[in-house]
Amino acid sequence: MSIVALRDAVVLLGRFPALSGVDLEVDAAEVVLLQGPNGAGKSTLLRFCAGLLRPHSGSAVVLGHDLRESRPAVRRSVGLLGHDTALYDDLTVTENLQFLARASRIEIEAVGSALNRLGVSARLHDVVVGQLSAGQRRRVALAGVALRRPELWLLDEPHAGLDQGGRDLVDGLVADAAADGATVLVASHELDRTLELATRRVTVVGGTITTDVVDAASVTDPPVQSKQES
């Protein structure tokens, strides 16, 4: 079963067609790099796959749920890291993640290990998020995604604002997620890093997918798709 199955999907932001006829099929454990110029629709595609946007036309099924009818069910099973961190400035690092854990019905004990996984030091756990640096906030937001152990990871520029150590942690996180059977869609301009992780490269331009390439060299198992370019 495909994790993401989009057929001629159109998404409107107001009246603007942010996605104008997207065809995309992603299988389990794939790591897909979304590349393309600014404003191409990469972030919108990630939000769409997260069940945050409604399809205007076409068909869209994510994790077996039709995005026309059951977007809340999709949301519960995905992890989205957007440009913003979706954290509360006046709550501490721990409080933010505990809120997320309780809301997502996850054991509170998982919070500590998620923060450790992202290298958020213990001295920061009781600091309010508003006092953190941009990179530290990004790490906490990533810990929030990791905490949920989603079936589908949707990462929008995950390396942005991170130091070398943080970038390595992100790469490790993505590799581990894929090894555990999760599917990852990463929108990134940092091709040197992301290409090493990706099993597939999708180019988005003007709200549509222009190329879709499976990089055989970076996958351990034979890819399902053959190389296709359009």
Partner: peptide, 17 residues
């Protein structure tokens, strides 16, 4: 403002409450 700052509203939606 609590929910509109830094995309926090999105976290509520994704959490499934």
């Amino acid at each position: 403002a609590i929910e509109t700052a830094d995309g926090a509203r999105r976290a509520l939606l994704l959490a499934g409450i």
